[in-house]
């Protein structure tokens, strides 16, 4: 079961890294969105998979009966989803504003902070 998921996680990482290596901000954003899912799936699978039994205690019991899914990775991932979403939104708006200002989404042309052919620093005192 986990092996099939290892395959899926590989595919997620490969695609998101491939997109992140692109020069275009918009593709990189898609890569970031996929990377979040890739990591979540990695954590989820590493905590072992259990089919269909949520980690919820029955109303008349004080501990879970039988085998349930591992609650810990779920708690980690739950907050991770929301946070990665907020930062995805942040990156999206950031690149949108950069696009408005610089009129490009090509990272090679976004060189305001590190302009090409910058003068060397003063060698004196």
């Amino acid at each position: 079961m986990e092996a099939a998921f290892a395959l899926l996680v590989s595919a997620y990482f490969a695609v998101s890294i491939y997109l992140l290596l692109s020069k275009h901000v918009i593709r990189m954003l898609l890569g970031v969105a996929l990377l979040g899912n890739a990591v979540n799936l990695l954590i989820f699978t590493a905590g072992r998979l259990v089919k269909e039994v949520p980690p919820i205690i029955a109303p008349d019991a004080s501990v879970p009966q039988g085998v349930t899914a591992n609650p810990l990775p779920q708690a980690l991932i739950l907050t991770a989803i929301v946070i990665s979403f907020s930062f995805f939104a942040f990156l999206l708006v950031l690149s949108y504003r950069a696009y408005q200002d610089l009129r490009t989404d090509d990272t090679d042309e976004m060189r305001l902070a590190e302009p090409a052919g910058e003068a060397p620093p003063p060698a004196g005192y």
Partner: peptide
């Protein structure tokens, strides 16, 4: 780029496999 991402992706997959 494709080669790098495939290697990294497979790396993550193998890592996950060894963990499990």
């Amino acid at each position: 780029d494709g080669a790098v991402s495939v290697v990294a992706g497979i790396g993550f997959g193998l890592l996950l496999l060894s963990v499990t």
